[in-house]
Design a binder for these strands. Sequence first.
DNA 1: AACGATGCCGGTATCGTTACCGTTATTCTA
DNA 2: TAGAATAACGGTAACGATACCGGCATCGTT
Lengths: 341, 341
Amino acid sequence: MSKKKATVTIQDVASTAGVSVSTVSRVLNGKADVASETQERIRSVIDSLGYTSSLAARSMRSTKMNLIGLIMPDIAYPFALEVMKGINRAIAESEYDLLVYTTGDVRKSGRAYHEQKYVSLLNNSLTDGAITVVPVSATFSTTAPIVSIDPHITNPGYPCVHATNYQGSVDAMQYLLSLGHKRIGYIGGRPELASSNRRFKGYCDSLVGAGLIIDESLVTTGDFTTETAIQCARELLTLDQPPTAIFAGNDQTAMGVFTVADEMGLRIPDDLSVIGFDNISESKYIGLTTVDQFISEMGFIATQMLIKLINHEPLEAQTHKVKTQLVIRKSCRALNQQVVR
Amino acid sequence: MSKKKATVTIQDVASTAGVSVSTVSRVLNGKADVASETQERIRSVIDSLGYTSSLAARSMRSTKMNLIGLIMPDIAYPFALEVMKGINRAIAESEYDLLVYTTGDVRKSGRAYHEQKYVSLLNNSLTDGAITVVPVSATFSTTAPIVSIDPHITNPGYPCVHATNYQGSVDAMQYLLSLGHKRIGYIGGRPELASSNRRFKGYCDSLVGAGLIIDESLVTTGDFTTETAIQCARELLTLDQPPTAIFAGNDQTAMGVFTVADEMGLRIPDDLSVIGFDNISESKYIGLTTVDQFISEMGFIATQMLIKLINHEPLEAQTHKVKTQLVIRKSCRALNQQVVR
DNA sequence: AACGATGCCGGTATCGTTACCGTTATTCTA
DNA sequence: TAGAATAACGGTAACGATACCGGCATCGTT
């Protein structure tokens, strides 16, 4: 019961094996210049002592860690989950492991809190590079490779992968228009996101392209969560002239519309057409017509790009656009002809 | 263009601010004993240089990191996703951030590879403690608090949280039995998991409790994935006397049964009753009757336990059992009376 | 006026590991 | 057999940060 040793270090291994730390480090990293007997002895000491090297200490001296960082504000929302699936797929077949960093909540302690923490993860080679789905301001000095997914408008210079939000939005609108809808409500997402703005532009352009005007009472803004979407949907559907179709900024928003429609006794698609964006895994079960933006694919590609960056291989392009695709299910239908009274 | 500085360190901040590193460290950690003018000056230097402290370096000297580790072999399967949701909820309202470590694939490089890596994450206080959903052998020396979720049978001594797998299994079987089923197929999970064995024991005990015998041809073993479940389901359903109901080891397994039933033209629940285990988020959409084991709740509770451990507060119990609950949807129906020919 | 208390700051010793350079003993070459 | 090459290992200096100790002013006491 002598002294309470917190953890067993390379020092302990070295001294009980009767060698220097250098030698232990050599066998740890599989380098040459160590007799096979010595190797075995050291290995058995490692086993019996239960030694594991410290990630932190190693990253301070070592250059290559074979570790990729993923930075997310919140890992529990569907978009994040899908991204992670893609990244998981990519790293599973690579030599890299993954370290996901999150604070659990975007609102935790303000912007500064996050930026500071985010960058310190990838700073100084704890990871070899990082994928981010949050804004990382360029004022922070980092030489580590970064790839961002669906980036914030303020995200500068970094390579990124994003979906063709504008085109996807146009596709969705064309579909709705072709079904005869003229009063189409819109529930937008967080205005600070580039994706959000692109989708809204697609909405507007399609409307004017069809010779329609943009009715501001039909345009609401949420934050991509189901909760606020419910409020927006209520607003839209209690209008004197409610829309016949609603274009939701993302699938979670669409779910909010479903909820409100249900509580108001509106049937989808009979009384109201709804179209979403994202195609999260739940969408197919509720029959939501939506725009697939292959989120998981974006994670997969981002990882591949990052690995290239780490290996100093050239990128085909700084930004990779993933094509969206309209997925028609059964939440939309052609508008009934106007009943003549 | 003089020398290419990789990253900006506390040294750089100190020298350009004309103070010592100690002082910079003090303002960084919000300690007293530094003049407010000096503070401001240092802060502005930090901003203009884009300095962020290195997580690795900090963890070597600092004791408290306000970081919780989560160790998972694969972050893309539904169980892991649900656990993460619960953990995310718990840390969002805490002072801790989360670091998830994964290799992306259980089969990546064998057991030793993983154990080594897993422990080195939490070793030496990169994190203040860790939650694990994988086996961590006790031979590794760590003083950091560990809480394990749904632990492997070989997981020793560590505090853990798990569902009442046995009781849940019995509940499911009683339900099936009450519906008149007598030939109930079983698709088990990975036999090295304690949860798996408990569920199987519930299956067996319920059968003999009802005066039935255990037909070994009705018992198959998968690995909790949909792919292998499909093989097991095929095996079961092509039997001379196929079962009238199938108890799937988890919901993903149940999905495999759905797939096979569909390709064989069997309607659920008309021609075949199916019951699952887990109640993952997809299950409600496909109308699967299952046993909810509140996975996300397990993650939430594990996090709370870990935080207590970190703060040296006493735990109410070393193992926390989360009660399961049968969720009846529409994948089961009463067995038709035997048609008299 | 002399003293201690306090505010503010710098210096140094680590933390655990790897990179780099030395050092010794042994074997090989000519 | 002398010299050089090699094998096998040890010593030391970082990496970037914090903890701890101590030093100098300045201020308030009695």
